[in-house]
Design a protein around this nucleic acid. Sequence first.
DNA 1: ATATAATACATGTAATAACAAGTATTGATG
DNA 2: CATCAATACTTGTTATTACATGTATTATAT
Lengths: 267, 267
Amino acid sequence: MKLKQGAPRHSQISQWLRKEIEDGTYMPDEKLPSENELAKKFGVSRVTIRRALQSLESEEIIYRCQGLGSFVSDTRTPHNLVRLTDFNEDMENAGLEASSIVKAFKTVEAPGWLAEILHVAEGNKVLQIDRLRLGNGEPIAYDITWMPILYGQLLQEDKLQDKTIYQTLEEEYEIPIIRGTYRISADVADNYLSTQLKADINAPLLTINRLSFTIGDKPVYYQQRYYRSDKVMYEMTLERDKNNSTSASELPLKEFVPVFKKTKDTG
Amino acid sequence: MKLKQGAPRHSQISQWLRKEIEDGTYMPDEKLPSENELAKKFGVSRVTIRRALQSLESEEIIYRCQGLGSFVSDTRTPHNLVRLTDFNEDMENAGLEASSIVKAFKTVEAPGWLAEILHVAEGNKVLQIDRLRLGNGEPIAYDITWMPILYGQLLQEDKLQDKTIYQTLEEEYEIPIIRGTYRISADVADNYLSTQLKADINAPLLTINRLSFTIGDKPVYYQQRYYRSDKVMYEMTLERDKNNSTSASELPLKEFVPVFKKTKDTG
DNA sequence: ATATAATACATGTAATAACAAGTATTGATG
DNA sequence: CATCAATACTTGTTATTACATGTATTATAT
């Protein structure tokens, strides 16, 4: 008798457990049922349960101690992966109140360099969104986003306060971002930016340009963001895994997060 | 009869295969022996072989196709991990000839902020190394490194051309760097830096400060590096794994590499 | 000659079994 | 009371077995 209802049993089970943990059925550091109990509960062998638990362990959703059991990891520690965060989320983590001022929401003709990046023909119309980003009312960053009309038509200006572009595309239109390329550089504030950001002219700016792709390597939007470098720096932690003693110099990234400075440090 | 010679059999085997692949016994895209053959060869069951191969697969050292076999991955693709690279290596990848000029190699008394970072007492002596970094003879970066005398005494000024601090500590003294914290920010060139880097005063600089730790969370060295932002930017790629359909916004980092510009772009 | 079916072999999934090894409790012993 | 051994329970490792599923080749029929 063929079952073949899609996914293998062990991944169904790990999915089930994942959901239980997300839903809060099992709290952080709480002990999960033992492998034998789970095996009985799901009517599978212990091997299958182990495979399911191994997935969760490698995602650092649970941790296991020989002789003790399996436990839920601390709440949403960075799961050995980097979470792509948006501005609002970053600010929230930093304990600042985020707000945005939409400075422009218009269609423009794509110049050559942009057309190439977004895979549209030169001169094609693209949506351009300029936003000033504030934390606790103070200017922190200024960004410009361009996207093909194909995707741009899905956004509405008034919704940009509540939801991020990322969320809107993924949740409402099932257009997931599966890849992003970041370019990190430095610049100095020109006349316009210094005015907008209320910074000195020639003030140093941390610039992060990112190009986001959806399935099929289709570019969805390109964003240039200028951070006031006296307000924010990016911090990343690379950590070497103790188990996988691979060749010397490989470390997995644990975190890549912006750090907001509340007080002005003397450099 | 107890064997207990340390590591479990499956990790011994994966280690063995890792080495074979590194040594070039199996070339990229070459088919490994089948699971059954390996099982017979090592005198273990197929389950154990599979565990070994699973490790290699998760490290992206091999890839497997149902019905075909297991194959060696393309040469040293970024193994889903970020490789910590040093300046010389970065330049080599960019096709530039790297050189360094040691501007200072001295002991100084650690000011408060540095003492705190390096976990030494304020006023303690620390080694300070100032270096100008060149690519094809042109100034690209300037960095200052501080390290406790404990580690500093292991370095010799004349060796800094050949080997990196990282390599020296790991290979000669078995002091591995297991964690690094990067802080990325922007600054403008002051009088001294603009002279050293042959850049305009107030030229934008990409600054990367990193603190490197060895086992026991002991800080080994702290480095401040200033890149001419017209010469280099950092690029990183985040990619979502197709298999692990975890919660929406988590992407593993594939690459974090500097990109050197050979020609001056118009901003 | 081309399309199809049979076959051999690869990895993928899973059940069952046994033992090793770490942890905590319990109970006997000093 | 303190110490130590026995015990029960946990995860870790491994062997054996069976079948499912994907791939490529070979033999067969059209």
